[in-house]
């Protein structure tokens, strides 16, 4: 068990998993509280379409994933602001459209491209040193910005209109949040993959949501749970030779159901009625 930590690839994947677990769960707190859960899923598919497009035309995948992700979240933001349609409907449309684009790009490629599928399902055990550096840089940026604007982000998550009315530049903060969601998705593509990143954003934050009545504590719990399931998942996947993405997500899901069973909120509802 201990000797595996001596492998360099193992150290890299554990570090990558821990970073992704932390970033996803912190941004997840704001995503869950602001009711943007499906934005994460939509963005992940858009970013994957960007990766597929990059392989098709022979460009670097990460920058294109960022571009595709950003365009999609910003469109989502405009649609939510205009409020013409329910957000779940407009995201549902974007989400499937970007997936269709991704499948189209893959279909246009000559032959089978295993690397593209690596972005769909994630492969944390094969993270290269360059990829780790990119993950580290993007994680630091996202975490730094989240920290700098945390009080405004909490306020718009609680009540965006009230935040605007009391002198917080709420619209700009909202777009900042959307931008950070897109960057987080791209950070996580290589490790957990486009399909499962959504789970990494939602599950630790929702687990923490079950456990506390305090905003600041919710964030602390979410990060702990996110990092623990990411690192634990990588170890499990190494020991039992499992695919890493599903191992991480299923571990997080187990913690989520445990928290539902043990939730003090649930107890409150039972006792108070």
């Amino acid at each position: 068990m201990v000797e595996m930590l001596a492998y360099e690839f193992m150290q890299r994947s554990l570090l990558a998993a821990a970073l992704v677990g932390a970033v996803c769960s912190v941004i997840g707190v704001f995503v869950v509280l602001r009711g943007l859960a499906f934005v994460g899923a939509g963005t992940a598919h858009a970013a994957f379409a960007g990766v597929a497009f990059a392989y098709l035309v022979g460009l670097p995948p990460l920058p294109l994933a960022v571009v595709f992700g950003l365009v999609t979240v910003w469109i989502t933001g405009v649609m939510e602001e205009q409020g013409r349609m329910k957000l779940d409907v407009s995201i549902g449309i974007l989400y499937t459209a970007t997936m269709a684009l991704a499948i189209l790009f893959i279909g246009l490629m000559k032959g089978y491209n295993a690397e593209v599928y690596g972005y769909l399902f994630g492969s944390v055990l094969s993270v290269t040193p360059e990829e780790l550096r990119a993950i580290l840089l993007l994680s630091l940026i996202v975490m730094g910005v989240l920290l700098a604007f945390s009080k405004e982000l909490y306020f718009i998550a609680f009540d965006q209109e009230m935040a605007e009315a009391s002198g917080v530049p709420a619209r700009r903060i909202f777009y900042l949040l959307l931008t950070l969601v897109a960057l987080t998705v791209v950070v996580s593509l290589k490790t957990v993959g486009a399909i499962l990143v959504f789970a990494m954003i939602l599950i630790p934050a929702s687990t923490a949501y079950q456990l506390t009545h305090s905003l600041s504590r919710m964030t602390a719990y979410a990060v702990t749970i996110g990092v623990a399931s990411a690192v634990g998942g990588v170890l499990l996947s190494y020991v039992w030779d499992l695919p890493s993405g599903p191992a991480i997500v299923l571990l997080a899901t187990t913690l989520f159901f445990l928290s539902v069973l043990l939730s003090p909120k649930r107890l409150r509802r039972v006792t108070v009625g």
Binding site: K151, F158, A163, G167, Y209, S214, L215
Partner: peptide, 15 residues
């Protein structure tokens, strides 16, 4: 929504 009374009132200071 996980927020305490004091956390909600503190939001009045943010702007």
């Amino acid at each position: 929504f996980p927020i305490t009374v004091l956390e909600a009132v503190m939001m009045g200071r943010y702007g």
